[in-house]
Each structure stands twice: as C-alpha cells, then as structure tokens.
Design a protein around this nucleic acid. Sequence first.
DNA 1: GAAAGGATGATCGATCAT
DNA 2: ATGATCGATCATCCTTTC
Length: 437
Amino acid sequence: MIIVSICDLRYLCLSLFKIVGPDSTIAELTDFICAAQMAKASDALMGELEEKPKQFFNDYPNHKKRRMLDYGKKQRFEKKLLNGDDEQIRLPIPMIGYGVPTEPGCITHRTLPEAAIGPPYFYYENVALTPKGVWDTISRFLYDVEPEFVDSKYFCAAARKRGYVHNLPIENRYPLLPLPPHNINEALPLTKKWWPSWDPRTKLNCLQTCVASAKLTERIRKALEDYDGTPPLSVQKYVLEECRKWNLVWVGRNKLAPLEPDEVEMLLGFPRNHTRGGGISRTDRYKSLGNSFQVDTVAYHLSVLKEMFPGGINVLSLFSGIGGAEVALHRLGVPLKNVVSVEISEVNRNIVRSWWEQTNQKGRLIDLADVQQLDADRVEHMFNSFGGFDLVIGGSPCNNLAGSNRHSRDGLEGKHSSLFYDFFRILNMVKDLTTRH
DNA sequence: GAAAGGATGATCGATCAT
DNA sequence: ATGATCGATCATCCTTTC
C-alpha cells in the first residue's frame, strides 16, 4: 500500500525549504520528512500492527530520536511506508543495466514516470553497493526513476559497479571509439611477460582513492623469491588476496606494483596526464581519479544526446570532480555551449579549467565551489542568461556509502553523502524553471 | 609541511554446504 | 530451507618518512 506518494514527499521537502529556509540542515529536513511520514502513515500502521505486530516491533524499535547509524532499519521503515507493493531494488546479474555494447540482452524501451520526463535531462551517479535502502531513497527523490546499475568492466579493464538514475532515452546508444582495451593484458601489455599462470585475473577490481605502498610490494617480492617457479598454494593465496585488494599488476620477476596515475587515467577513459596539473601530488591524483566517472560508461549513456543537440548543449554539472561528464560529452562530439561546473576541490577545478583550455573549447565554463551556495537566485540568473539547461549531471559524494570506509559509513544521511539532497534540490529548481518557460 | 605508509571492519549479496 | 563462508568495496585517521 502506498501511503505517501513521491509528490507528497517532494512537496514536503520543498515546503520545508520555504518554511525554514536554505540554512536548515539535512538532518532537520529528513527529520521533518520522517515526522510527516509518521503522521500520515499512522492509520495504516495501526492496521499493519494488527497483522504482524511482532515483526513491526522487531524492525522498528521505539525510539524518538533518529540515530545516524540505524539507517538500515529506518530505510526498511520508509520502504514499508512508501513502497510496500514494490520489491526492494536489486542489483541485476549480469550488471549491464539496459545493456552494454559487448553483451547480448539489450533493453531498448522503458516507460518513465510522468514526473521524470524531461526537459531537462538529468543523470545521477553513485556507488552500486550501498547500505540497504539507499537506492530506494535516491530513486524516490529522483521522480521514481529506477536506477540503471552498470559495471564498467563491460567497458574497460577495470570493474566499477555504479548505479545511474537518469531520464535519457535508451534507444540507439553507441560507445565511444576506439573501444578501450577490455582485459588487463591488452590495457597493460608490459605486464603480460611477467604474469604467472596461477594468477587468473583478467579484469582489475574497482580503482579506488588509495594505492598500495612500495613497502607492501617489496614484502610480497620477498615472500615469492624463496621459491623457484610456482610458489605453494598458501603463498599463492596470500599474494592473490593482496593483488585483488590493492589492484596490483606484475611488472617484473616476483615483482608487483600498483597502477601508475597515467594508467588509471587511461582505464577511466581520460586523456593522458589529465590530472597532471601544476603542483598536484601523486597521492592527490589517485584521490581525484578514484572519485571519478568511468568515461566510456557514462558516454555510452549520454550518446543519445548527440543527435538531439547538434548545436550543442548547456550543462549544469554538479560535483564535477575532474570533469568526467565534460570529457564524455566532448569525446562524443557534443558541443559544449555553457557549462556550469560545481566542485568543492580547488585542485579539481583547476584540472577541469586546464582541460577546457587545452581542448580549445568554444563555449563558456563557469566554475563554482559549493553546491550548498547555489541558491534559487543564482540558478535562475544563469538559467535565464543561457536560455535554460539541457542536462543536469553529477555524482554526489559516496564516502558515507562506500564499503571501503571503516570510519563513517553512515549512509545517505552522512556528512558528505547527504549532499545528494542538494542534487535533488537544484535539479528540481531547474525542472520548475524549465516547465515555467 | 608535504607526501607516503600502515592500521582500521562492516555490509551485503552470491555461492556453497548442510 | 538455512546457515556458513567468501569476496568486493569512488575511505579515514594517525604515524612515519622525506
């Protein structure tokens, strides 16, 4: 039974911004929404309590204050309230979304919810493997569009499991050419010579923000060189574990190494030296790259824009990072008229700016620092001076969702990941402005 | 100071064993 | 069916080294 519709939720959200103003925190916002849902749903809950009271109390302990860390229970709660008829969002096997160029089984038709249909087009990205219920919430806010889960291992030699919520057409997509190498030994041909037969990997795992230290690879080398030829199974197991955990590749006899920043750029579909701005350390390059789009994957989804906008597009790019969206559109040959790029990191803004200059862009790049400072007035002003935005694109922070985070995997309400609600807020403003014109 | 190294589990699903 | 096991994962904080 659907108790609170997505429209109600959006109106609640928007009215809260009007009531308490843009300075209110996300925690206040979500508390408000939860309280409103509670009130609206109380009648139906009484019915449900009669049916299976025990399960209810197991699932939803009786506390007034919402705690950050019990997102799982809260999300189940919300799901039951809002989406009781639907199954929880599941990841597809294989993880190819509506289809990828290299695999059979392409879906060419879907029906979008009425409220989701553009203009503007929007494209939202985040990690696929989140705590439970996160994608249900994201999908509900983004007009009930079902996420498209795609693993970039179908586009390049490294895995990258991501969910994409967008309202783009899915017919007649095409990949960037030339197709990038799909296996490790094609992408990194020099490793082939040293690759032992007992290492069965053909794809790398997800490229992350940290890489293994030289000390670690030295320890592995020492462990291997005790044996002439094939090491015993126990050593093989240890080495392969470290290889998979740290994405190590073979660069010499018994010698493993982490990927170079150049190689990560190539695997992610960026031009060589894309992140080699002035004064950026190796560590910072890995960090910026690890937080980025896989360009070929995103470009495949965006390729439908090429025919629709032969004269170019205006883009609002939120959480731009090192400009994965901009690079993807450029490589597709979609002219960039006006690009508003919002990115908190100055280093990343410099990277995008110098890419913009190096590629001789004819359009205009406006870079801003903070999505939270992007209020209705500024959006409306830019909207009017450009004649609207054709695409709102971005991937909001994943650090409170990602599995690698031991310290603060707090879910969508976490300090950084809650900026998702700013993506929704800004997209919704653009949507309103577009329909008004 | 800046860069690199090292220690730090948990979640969730898929697969396997019972 | 049900529980055990396995494997992947856009990270953060503090210490050490340069």
